[in-house]
Design a protein around this nucleic acid. Structure first.
Length: 271
DNA sequence: GTTGAGCGTT
Protein backbone atom coordinates (compact mmCIF):
# COMPACT_ATOMS: atom_id res chain seq x y z
CA UNK A 1 0.00 0.00 0.00
CA UNK A 2 1.81 2.99 -1.16
CA UNK A 3 -0.84 5.20 -2.51
CA UNK A 4 -3.44 6.28 -0.07
CA UNK A 5 -6.73 7.86 -0.67
CA UNK A 6 -7.04 6.00 -3.89
CA UNK A 7 -10.32 4.46 -2.99
CA UNK A 8 -11.68 7.11 -0.74
CA UNK A 9 -11.91 6.87 3.00
CA UNK A 10 -11.40 3.28 4.04
CA UNK A 11 -12.87 3.37 7.49
CA UNK A 12 -12.46 6.10 9.99
CA UNK A 13 -14.50 4.41 12.61
CA UNK A 14 -11.58 2.84 14.31
CA UNK A 15 -8.85 5.13 13.25
CA UNK A 16 -7.31 8.21 14.68
CA UNK A 17 -6.75 11.12 12.39
CA UNK A 18 -3.72 13.27 12.73
CA UNK A 19 -3.39 16.58 11.09
CA UNK A 20 -0.02 17.34 9.63
CA UNK A 21 0.52 20.99 8.96
CA UNK A 22 3.31 23.09 7.72
CA UNK A 23 4.39 20.53 5.23
CA UNK A 24 5.83 21.61 1.97
CA UNK A 25 3.59 21.87 -1.01
CA UNK A 26 5.62 19.20 -2.60
CA UNK A 27 5.36 16.68 0.15
CA UNK A 28 3.25 13.73 -0.77
CA UNK A 29 1.64 10.94 1.17
CA UNK A 30 4.39 8.63 0.10
CA UNK A 31 6.88 10.89 1.75
CA UNK A 32 4.98 11.00 4.98
CA UNK A 33 4.08 7.39 5.08
CA UNK A 34 7.52 6.08 6.05
CA UNK A 35 7.90 8.79 8.60
CA UNK A 36 4.63 8.13 10.29
CA UNK A 37 4.61 4.44 9.76
CA UNK A 38 7.78 4.23 11.72
CA UNK A 39 6.00 5.26 14.87
CA UNK A 40 2.88 3.24 14.42
CA UNK A 41 0.50 1.54 12.12
CA UNK A 42 -0.67 4.04 9.55
CA UNK A 43 -4.01 3.13 8.14
CA UNK A 44 -4.31 5.84 5.60
CA UNK A 45 -2.81 9.12 4.59
CA UNK A 46 -4.72 11.76 2.81
CA UNK A 47 -3.48 15.06 1.51
CA UNK A 48 -6.13 17.52 0.39
CA UNK A 49 -5.35 18.88 -3.00
CA UNK A 50 -6.59 21.79 -4.90
CA UNK A 51 -9.41 20.95 -7.23
CA UNK A 52 -8.23 23.32 -9.87
CA UNK A 53 -4.57 22.63 -10.01
CA UNK A 54 -4.48 19.45 -8.02
CA UNK A 55 -1.59 20.58 -5.88
CA UNK A 56 -1.42 19.82 -2.23
CA UNK A 57 -2.67 22.47 0.09
CA UNK A 58 0.15 22.21 2.51
CA UNK A 59 -1.29 19.84 5.05
CA UNK A 60 -2.06 16.20 5.28
CA UNK A 61 -4.13 13.81 7.33
CA UNK A 62 -2.58 10.73 8.74
CA UNK A 63 -4.78 8.10 10.19
CA UNK A 64 -3.44 5.77 12.76
CA UNK A 65 -4.89 2.55 13.92
CA UNK A 66 -4.23 3.11 17.56
CA UNK A 67 -4.45 6.25 19.58
CA UNK A 68 -1.31 5.62 21.55
CA UNK A 69 0.62 5.28 18.36
CA UNK A 70 -0.90 8.40 17.00
CA UNK A 71 -0.02 10.19 20.19
CA UNK A 72 3.49 8.98 19.92
CA UNK A 73 3.71 10.10 16.34
CA UNK A 74 2.46 13.49 17.30
CA UNK A 75 5.02 13.74 19.98
CA UNK A 76 7.79 12.46 17.83
CA UNK A 77 6.99 13.98 14.51
CA UNK A 78 5.64 17.24 15.71
CA UNK A 79 8.31 19.72 14.85
CA UNK A 80 10.23 17.35 12.68
CA UNK A 81 11.97 18.68 9.64
CA UNK A 82 10.45 17.32 6.50
CA UNK A 83 11.65 18.38 3.13
CA UNK A 84 13.38 21.29 4.76
CA UNK A 85 10.37 22.46 6.65
CA UNK A 86 9.20 21.89 10.15
CA UNK A 87 5.94 20.07 10.10
CA UNK A 88 3.28 20.31 12.73
CA UNK A 89 1.55 17.16 13.79
CA UNK A 90 -1.53 17.25 15.95
CA UNK A 91 -4.77 15.45 16.39
CA UNK A 92 -7.44 16.40 13.95
CA UNK A 93 -10.18 18.46 15.41
CA UNK A 94 -12.76 18.11 12.71
CA UNK A 95 -13.77 15.20 10.64
CA UNK A 96 -14.60 15.00 6.97
CA UNK A 97 -18.23 15.44 7.77
CA UNK A 98 -17.52 18.45 9.88
CA UNK A 99 -17.86 16.21 12.88
CA UNK A 100 -16.06 16.99 16.03
CA UNK A 101 -13.13 14.86 16.76
CA UNK A 102 -11.94 14.05 20.19
CA UNK A 103 -8.29 13.27 20.39
CA UNK A 104 -8.18 12.39 16.79
CA UNK A 105 -11.10 10.08 17.06
CA UNK A 106 -14.48 11.07 15.79
CA UNK A 107 -16.92 11.49 18.58
CA UNK A 108 -19.45 8.76 18.31
CA UNK A 109 -22.90 8.74 19.70
CA UNK A 110 -21.88 5.88 21.90
CA UNK A 111 -19.86 8.21 23.96
CA UNK A 112 -22.37 8.18 26.74
CA UNK A 113 -21.19 6.11 29.62
CA UNK A 114 -18.24 4.61 27.90
CA UNK A 115 -15.29 3.95 30.06
CA UNK A 116 -14.02 7.44 30.38
CA UNK A 117 -11.06 6.38 32.43
CA UNK A 118 -9.77 5.07 29.17
CA UNK A 119 -8.15 8.44 28.73
CA UNK A 120 -4.46 8.07 28.88
CA UNK A 121 -2.87 11.27 29.81
CA UNK A 122 -4.21 14.74 29.26
CA UNK A 123 -0.88 15.84 28.08
CA UNK A 124 -2.14 17.76 25.13
CA UNK A 125 -5.03 19.22 26.99
CA UNK A 126 -3.29 22.56 27.23
CA UNK A 127 -3.77 23.01 23.55
CA UNK A 128 -7.53 23.09 23.70
CA UNK A 129 -7.65 26.48 25.30
CA UNK A 130 -5.42 27.91 22.72
CA UNK A 131 -7.18 26.17 19.93
CA UNK A 132 -10.26 28.20 20.61
CA UNK A 133 -8.35 31.36 20.11
CA UNK A 134 -6.80 30.05 16.99
CA UNK A 135 -10.12 29.31 15.46
CA UNK A 136 -11.56 32.61 16.53
CA UNK A 137 -8.62 34.57 15.30
CA UNK A 138 -9.20 34.00 11.67
CA UNK A 139 -10.58 31.46 9.37
CA UNK A 140 -8.34 29.57 7.10
CA UNK A 141 -6.60 31.30 4.34
CA UNK A 142 -7.01 28.35 2.10
CA UNK A 143 -10.69 28.39 2.65
CA UNK A 144 -10.95 32.01 1.85
CA UNK A 145 -8.97 31.55 -1.24
CA UNK A 146 -11.17 28.72 -2.25
CA UNK A 147 -14.34 30.64 -1.80
CA UNK A 148 -12.92 33.73 -3.34
CA UNK A 149 -11.86 31.83 -6.34
CA UNK A 150 -15.23 30.32 -6.73
CA UNK A 151 -16.85 33.67 -6.42
CA UNK A 152 -14.49 35.09 -8.89
CA UNK A 153 -15.42 32.45 -11.37
CA UNK A 154 -19.03 33.29 -10.93
CA UNK A 155 -18.29 36.92 -11.15
CA UNK A 156 -16.86 36.43 -14.52
CA UNK A 157 -20.03 34.78 -15.64
CA UNK A 158 -22.11 37.53 -14.23
CA UNK A 159 -20.05 40.12 -15.92
CA UNK A 160 -20.47 38.38 -19.17
CA UNK A 161 -24.15 38.24 -18.69
CA UNK A 162 -24.71 41.81 -17.69
CA UNK A 163 -22.22 44.57 -17.37
CA UNK A 164 -23.96 46.61 -14.73
CA UNK A 165 -24.80 44.62 -11.70
CA UNK A 166 -25.55 45.41 -8.13
CA UNK A 167 -23.98 48.42 -6.54
CA UNK A 168 -22.01 46.60 -3.95
CA UNK A 169 -20.30 44.57 -6.55
CA UNK A 170 -19.53 47.57 -8.61
CA UNK A 171 -18.26 49.34 -5.59
CA UNK A 172 -15.30 47.10 -5.33
CA UNK A 173 -14.39 47.46 -8.91
CA UNK A 174 -15.12 51.12 -8.89
CA UNK A 175 -12.84 51.69 -5.97
CA UNK A 176 -9.85 50.53 -7.88
CA UNK A 177 -10.95 52.13 -11.09
CA UNK A 178 -11.44 55.40 -9.32
CA UNK A 179 -8.01 55.22 -7.91
CA UNK A 180 -6.53 54.64 -11.28
CA UNK A 181 -8.61 57.32 -12.80
CA UNK A 182 -7.46 59.80 -10.27
CA UNK A 183 -3.91 59.08 -11.07
CA UNK A 184 -4.55 59.22 -14.70
CA UNK A 185 -6.61 62.33 -14.86
CA UNK A 186 -5.74 64.38 -11.92
CA UNK A 187 -6.14 67.78 -13.52
CA UNK A 188 -9.50 66.85 -14.83
CA UNK A 189 -10.96 66.55 -11.39
CA UNK A 190 -9.21 69.69 -10.32
CA UNK A 191 -12.37 71.70 -9.93
CA UNK A 192 -14.07 68.83 -8.25
CA UNK A 193 -11.14 68.39 -5.99
CA UNK A 194 -11.47 71.93 -4.90
CA UNK A 195 -15.07 71.49 -4.01
CA UNK A 196 -15.11 68.08 -2.49
CA UNK A 197 -11.93 66.35 -1.67
CA UNK A 198 -13.12 62.85 -1.79
CA UNK A 199 -16.74 62.06 -2.03
CA UNK A 200 -19.24 60.73 -4.40
CA UNK A 201 -20.70 63.02 -7.00
CA UNK A 202 -23.31 65.42 -5.74
CA UNK A 203 -25.71 63.99 -8.22
CA UNK A 204 -26.27 60.40 -7.39
CA UNK A 205 -27.21 58.43 -10.40
CA UNK A 206 -30.20 57.12 -8.62
CA UNK A 207 -33.24 57.26 -10.82
CA UNK A 208 -35.68 54.79 -9.49
CA UNK A 209 -38.46 56.48 -11.35
CA UNK A 210 -40.45 53.85 -13.12
CA UNK A 211 -40.05 55.28 -16.52
CA UNK A 212 -39.94 52.01 -18.22
CA UNK A 213 -43.56 52.29 -19.15
CA UNK A 214 -42.65 54.91 -21.69
CA UNK A 215 -41.75 52.35 -24.21
CA UNK A 216 -44.58 49.98 -24.69
CA UNK A 217 -42.66 48.28 -27.39
CA UNK A 218 -42.50 45.36 -25.09
CA UNK A 219 -46.03 44.43 -25.86
CA UNK A 220 -45.27 44.28 -29.53
CA UNK A 221 -42.44 42.04 -28.77
CA UNK A 222 -42.58 39.01 -30.98
CA UNK A 223 -42.72 36.68 -28.08
CA UNK A 224 -43.70 33.19 -28.92
CA UNK A 225 -46.82 32.04 -27.36
CA UNK A 226 -45.88 29.86 -24.45
CA UNK A 227 -49.08 28.04 -24.99
CA UNK A 228 -47.25 25.83 -27.36
CA UNK A 229 -49.68 25.57 -30.18
CA UNK A 230 -47.43 23.24 -32.05
CA UNK A 231 -47.46 19.73 -30.73
CA UNK A 232 -43.74 19.50 -30.88
CA UNK A 233 -43.27 22.52 -28.74
CA UNK A 234 -45.78 21.33 -26.26
CA UNK A 235 -44.20 18.01 -26.04
CA UNK A 236 -40.90 19.63 -25.32
CA UNK A 237 -42.36 21.89 -22.73
CA UNK A 238 -43.96 19.02 -20.96
CA UNK A 239 -40.78 17.12 -21.02
CA UNK A 240 -38.94 20.03 -19.45
CA UNK A 241 -41.44 20.72 -16.78
CA UNK A 242 -42.12 17.14 -16.35
CA UNK A 243 -45.43 17.41 -14.73
CA UNK A 244 -47.43 20.56 -15.11
CA UNK A 245 -48.03 22.40 -18.31
CA UNK A 246 -49.20 25.42 -16.36
CA UNK A 247 -46.57 26.28 -13.82
CA UNK A 248 -48.61 29.24 -12.72
CA UNK A 249 -50.84 27.33 -10.44
CA UNK A 250 -48.54 24.56 -9.69
CA UNK A 251 -47.44 25.69 -6.30
CA UNK A 252 -50.14 26.30 -3.75
CA UNK A 253 -47.97 28.56 -1.71
CA UNK A 254 -46.98 30.18 -4.96
CA UNK A 255 -43.75 31.73 -3.96
CA UNK A 256 -43.36 34.73 -6.26
CA UNK A 257 -39.92 33.62 -7.08
CA UNK A 258 -40.73 33.59 -10.72
CA UNK A 259 -40.57 37.35 -10.77
CA UNK A 260 -37.40 37.49 -8.80
CA UNK A 261 -36.31 40.72 -10.32
CA UNK A 262 -38.29 43.59 -8.94
CA UNK A 263 -35.58 45.92 -10.02
CA UNK A 264 -35.04 45.36 -13.67
CA UNK A 265 -32.69 48.27 -13.47
CA UNK A 266 -32.56 50.23 -16.66
CA UNK A 267 -32.08 48.91 -20.08
CA UNK A 268 -30.00 51.82 -21.05
CA UNK A 269 -27.73 51.16 -23.93
CA UNK A 270 -24.68 50.94 -21.85
CA UNK A 271 -22.87 49.07 -24.47
C1' DG B 1 7.64 29.04 -11.15
C1' DT B 2 5.24 31.32 -6.66
C1' DT B 3 2.53 31.30 -1.13
C1' DG B 4 2.08 29.56 4.52
C1' DA B 5 -2.06 29.18 8.40
C1' DG B 6 -4.07 25.76 9.11
C1' DC B 7 -8.91 20.61 9.32
C1' DG B 8 -10.31 15.98 4.61
C1' DT B 9 -11.31 12.63 -0.10
C1' DT B 10 -14.17 7.86 -3.77
Amino acid sequence: MSHFGRSGPPDISDTYSLLVLNITFRTTADDLFPLFDKYGKVVDIFIPKDRRTGESRGFAFVRYKYADEAQKAVDRLDGRMVDGREITVQFAKYGPNAERIHKGRIIETAQRSRNRSRSRSPRKRYRDDKDRDYRKRSRSRSYDRYERDRHRGKDRDYRHRSRSRSTSLDYKGRGRARYDDEHHSRSRSRSVDSRSPVRRSPSPRKSPSPQRSTSPQRSTSPRKSPRGESPANRSRSRSRDGRSPSPRSVSPRGRPEASRSPSPRNSNGDE
